[in-house]
Design a binder for these strands. Structure first.
Lengths: 147, 147
DNA sequence: CGTTGCGTTGACGCCGACGTCAACCCCTAG
DNA sequence: CTAGGGGTTGACGTCGGCGTCAACGCAACG
């Protein structure tokens, strides 16, 4: 199998495969014309990489899985190094989710405050005091030093 | 106030300020020697930018806030465009969090499965059948075609 | 007078994971 | 013979937000 076929079967591009080879993730034999030659195991290997990358793993993080497969193990995550990468990624994901939630709260609060301000600017007269119509906020004091 | 002082007071670098000016986020007057000159309002403006960037806003997304401040409004989020950016960012954050959670579950499941496999490889004899000691998985069948 | 220490512009570096282009080689079908 | 559809290497482009020179100007201090 040559690079074009492998790329198509793996749902990727030849550029990507060449890049992976350059990174040492893919090992290609060469035929008489210098063409890269691949086998079925390379396809499984690529599927492993793709699955991981879809889950947000960096290319380098797939290396233990690749090496595990190449060592003859039935799955890329049959080796301790791969499990370690899983665990690190889980911790990373948890930390990221936690931070995003914090930020979400922060931004949500800011939006809420700003919306209240905006509403106050539109309907400024507090009619709870039964007072007669006062001047409804004199249109911004024109170049106010600080709030 | 010149660029060094502003950078220090804003907790950033001169490079950043020049970059912001190039992006049109900061407008600097020049003195007799061609030096940039800033005022206090630029400091507030930079604080607005920094707050937003700390919350994951891209530089371009801070533009409405900056323009809002420059238009004389008391806060960067006093304008509808800014509120719109808030809302978009909230939606973005929610989507991102949801996806990360999905991925987290996926990775967690993979880790769990792989750990079970690993445990099975270490203590392979299912002793529930009361059978005598069988050969505990014959060391991988040496170059298996496919699983 | 030289040496700091501020400022200026311009331009390249970085990071990851490729996309894209150029210039070339190889085989096959018409 | 030519065109077309593989393959090859090498190199530059992308994106954001700056970092990091380089080479210069201007001012004050000792």
């Amino acid at each position: 199998m040559r690079i074009g076929e492998l790329a198509e079967r793996a749902g990727t591009t030849t550029r990507t495969l060449r890049y992976y080879e350059a990174r040492g993730l893919l090992a290609a034999a060469r035929d008489a014309h210098g063409y890269r030659t691949f086998g079925e195991e390379d396809l499984r290997l690529l599927r492993q990489i793709r699955t991981l990358r879809e889950n947000g793993f960096e290319l380098e993080e797939t290396r233990p899985f690749v090496e595990c497969l190449r060592a003859g193990h039935p799955a890329g995550d049959s080796c301790p190094d791969s499990l370690e990468v899983y665990r690190r990624k889980l911790a990373e994901l948890d930390a990221c989710i936690a931070e995003l939630r914090t930020v979400r709260e922060e931004v949500g609060a800011r939006l809420a405050r700003a919306e209240i301000e905006a509403a106050a600017a539109h309907a400024p007269a507090p009619r709870c005091a039964l007072a007669p119509s006062e001047p409804p906020t004199p249109r911004e004091p024109e170049e106010e030093g600080r709030k």
